[in-house]
């Protein structure tokens, strides 16, 4: 009842949107597609929700083929498109009722599934959707996608443009839905959200960089990552680029992340080098790699 893709490719007018994508999502899994804008996430979602037909390869959702059995899939999946904004001129309640009716169900029938989420927006049920805050719109959209008790839920960038509090609440809701045995495929451009998924696929330029659990992905990172700080941040990066044993250097929050070609970097050696170049307030420390470090390393290749 999960999702499986085998060698899926799709081009638009010569532009390769996605190339040879294969992966499996297990039933009940919360699976994340992580990648920047233009990575091909939306194309992938549209193929799986039967809105596009792939140029080559096969895929199935909940055991049904996305081309042959598209009608079956349309009955049993929930979908929240990327720039989905509901009907702004309908109230919360009217939006929900509309989606319930077109899926041939009622609000009451599957109320247990959306109860948690709906209770948060119920006080505003007579308000027009256009007048809701971003976070509330997301909740309403999720309710609409769940109203027919789908087996598989597709959420295309649900947290884009949403503030941190609503983002956190949204992910909490996904965790609770997972307990109700719904398979969830979610995409996001934010690397920090990868850690919230069971497994993730990292994507860039239409290609898969890596598939694994977030934990394994960072464990596989081959190098020791040093975070380095100095008062003169811009100069620090320039100076590190000139360091003979440099492997990579990237700004990373208030520090820069540095990796060395060798495995036996001596911190004092680097510190002296930086001092000799006139940098002050130098800090060097070992740190854990993040999904972003991995992503950049994979994208470099």
């Amino acid at each position: 009842m999960g999702i499986s893709l085998d060698n899926i490719s799709k081009s638009y007018k010569g532009f390769k949107a996605i190339q040879n994508i294969s992966f499996e999502v297990k039933p009940g899994e919360l699976f994340g597609i992580i990648g920047p804008d233009g990575a091909g996430k939306t194309t992938l979602f549209r193929i799986l929700t039967t809105l596009l037909v792939a140029d080559s390869g096969t895929a199935s959702v909940a055991g049904m083929d996305v081309v042959k059995d598209y009608i079956g899939i349309r009955k049993s999946v929930g979908y929240m498109p990327g720039k989905f904004s509901l009907y702004q001129d309908l109230t919360v309640e009217e939006n929900l009722q509309f989606f319930a009716t077109i899926f041939g169900t009622t609000l009451e029938e599957n109320y247990d599934l959306i109860k948690d989420i709906y209770e948060q927006i119920e006080p505003f049920k007579t308000r027009r959707a256009g007048k809701l805050s971003g976070g509330m719109k997301q909740k309403l959209a999720l309710c609409c996608a769940l109203i027919h008790k789908p087996k598989v839920l597709f959420l295309d960038e649900p947290t884009t443009g949403v503030d941190p509090v609503s983002r956190k609440e949204f992910w909490d809701m996904l965790k609770r839905l997972q307990e109700k045995e719904i398979t969830i495929l979610v995409s996001t451009p934010y690397m920090d959200e990868a850690a919230l998924c069971d497994r993730v696929a990292l994507m860039q330029d239409g290609q898969l960089l890596e598939i694994d659990s977030p934990k394994h992905i960072v464990q596989k990172y081959p190098k020791a990552v040093y975070e380095i700080g100095a008062k003169e941040r811009h100069k620090l990066i320039q100076v590190l680029r000139d360091f003979p044993n440099l492997y990579s250097v990237y700004p990373f929050g208030e520090f820069v992340h540095y990796t060395d070609k060798r495995t036996d970097l001596e911190i004092p050696e680097l510190e002296n080098y930086l001092k000799s170049k006139g940098l002050s307030e130098i800090y060097i420390g070992l740190t854990e790699p993040t999904i972003e470090d991995v992503f950049m390393e994979l994208a470099r290749k």
Binding site: T50, P81, F84
Partner: peptide, 13 residues
């Protein structure tokens, strides 16, 4: 434009 057409297509309608 709203993106709701995608939802309507991915529905039993």
């Amino acid at each position: 434009e709203l993106g709701t057409m995608e939802i309507l297509l991915v529905s039993p309608l």
